[in-house]
Design a binder for these strands. Structure first.
Lengths: 191, 191
DNA sequence: TTTCAGCGAGACTAGAAGTCTCGTTGTTCA
DNA sequence: TGAACAACGAGACTTCTAGTCTCGCTGAAA
């Protein structure tokens, strides 16, 4: 056990909560590191002692705060499982998390480290769940074996991401069904 | 005709070229407004006289620089036209323009004005071309009339955008075909 | 009770966006 | 031709924020 005072875990939680809350409600404005520190009742140095940058805090807050969002149901009806999952994505993107994700991705071009971690810790794990589900569909003979899995996944997720990032159209729950309707005929095994 | 010295159109062109070149090659680093001014051989005030912000310059540069990119062929084979168009998108996104688009979209969350203009001047017009092509397909009885056109368009473009923004996978020309392969069975009129 | 790292507070530094001023240049109009 | 005037290059200046540094204090471990 190292000497000295131990880390204040409560302060850690307050920082993550403050970061998530501020970035999720205000849109980047007022979300200086000072504002996060003040909201959390913490000194700025306490933040920089544990995180390398403001964006790293937000990423941690996102990963921690949405750990259990967009679960993947495992029933015998793969198609419906995907619809269910996508509906969860719509809900997530329309919540404060959506704004946090958008802000985070906006930092990615200027911070490759963040971009990499975002993929490794947030996007990757979720996408892998989908991939596994797709592969199980192939094993069970319900999904065609000759599809390009990566392209199919990106076609399934793409519409939501494009709307989150560009914002040209709203995301509605019914779109989850429509996306699956559009994709499914191309990947299912012909009856 | 107003009195006084007229605008230096050559300086305007140099500013746009410098902005596009710097943002397209270096990734946001070294792309301060000072750097653009220096590269263009222009005073900073000359930039702010004509553009409201640094990002507005980059948007103009993008619109001007990619006016003729990703054209939409009009043959009798709609499916191949889409493949051709998507292949153009892949090429565009893999070029310096891709980086410029990414940087621009990264500014969008903190600058609603830019977000709106990006849609109105870049994304909207291109998307409308696709939409018109899709609708012509419906009129000609090649595409199903009951599809949700917006969702289909976003499913077609989505994979490229998601890869541009997240960067989890490269974009290859062959993906253009694979995307269309994945989407087409769901939207074409059954034989 | 000594040691020592974490803590809050806040001064400080560095760098970039955007503003302001100034003397100069080029165009229009009387 | 020359006065009026706006755009120009140059660069100082202001403002804001990310991130650093220093301080005296606090609390857990040995």
């Amino acid at each position: 056990m190292p000497r000295g005072r131990t880390r204040d875990e409560d302060a850690r939680d307050r920082v993550l909560a403050a970061a998530f809350s501020l970035v999720g409600s205000s849109g980047t404005e007022q979300v200086s590191i000072n504002a996060i520190a003040e909201e959390a009742g913490v000194a700025k140095q306490t933040i920089y002692r544990w995180w390398p940058s403001r964006t790293a805090v937000v990423l941690d807050a996102l990963v921690e705060g949405t750990m259990k969002a967009t679960p993947f149901r495992e029933t015998d009806d793969i198609r419906t499982d995907f619809e269910h999952h996508l509906a969860g994505v719509v809900k997530l993107f329309n919540s404060p998390s959506g704004r946090v994700i958008r802000e985070l991705l906006a930092e990615a071009p200027s911070d490759p480290q963040i971009a990499e971690e975002f993929v490794a810790r947030f996007w990757g794990p979720r996408r892998d769940l989908s991939l596994a589900r797709l592969q199980r569909g192939i094993e069970r003979g319900e999904i065609r074996a000759d599809i390009d899995e990566e392209v199919v996944l990106d076609a399934i997720y793409g519409p939501m991401w494009i709307r989150l990032m560009i914002g040209h159209l709203p995301m509605k729950p019914v779109d989850a069904t429509r996306i699956v309707d559009a994709i499914w005929p191309g990947i299912q095994v012909a009856d």
